[in-house]
Amino acid sequence: MLSLTIDGKKVEAEAGWSLLDTARQYGIEIPTLCYHEAVEPFGACRLCVVELRQGNNSRLVASCVYPAEQGLEVHTASEKVNNVRRWILEMLLSECPASSEIREMAAQYGVKTTRFEISDPEQECILCGLCVRACAQVVGANAISTVGRGAQKEIGSPYLTPGDDCVACGTCVTVCPTGAMSARFERVRGVPAVVMARSVKG
């Protein structure tokens, strides 16, 4: 067992646990968006960042992917940590204003409005990639992926056309933290060949 401290509390972790695993074992709250027990941690949303302090040095790491190590001093809600969370949430408010989940989470951090421009009031997708990872790692279908890069990034099927790779299992919809995948589902799922044949025959 590894012993470390989280928010001043002495905790023990098994080798291979992440800091998030360890914190949750002790009931210490750390917010996450791109994390799900069913898939490999990804380290993308950065809401789960925690501060590691060693002497005068301090840095932030994503607790979902950072392994528990002997002697670590972890702070889950320091000012440095909360500054990152507040900014991410405020930017998400302008990025995906239609998501009530994001609004609730932001409110918990005192973020009620955004100073930034809203380009798509209907947007819910936060691009956490959970749908993509669930499709690949849980279902094994690999029917969707992220398409494009940076600000142009979106979730879609190959060539952004509905395909037969999707088995319509709905796993992506289930893991989606904001419900954005429900609206995208029809654009991913191809019309089964047999249905096509019937409709052509009329």
């Binding site: 380290g43 809401l47 302008s94 890069r149 940076g150």
Partner: peptide
């Protein structure tokens, strides 16, 4: 950097365009 950000992590994908804004 906004154009070249891979868009995986949120602070970079969301933050760099907002700095520019």
């Amino acid at each position: 950097l906004e154009e070249e950000s891979c868009g995986k992590c949120f602070p970079c994908r969301l933050g760099v365009p907002r700095l520019r804004e």
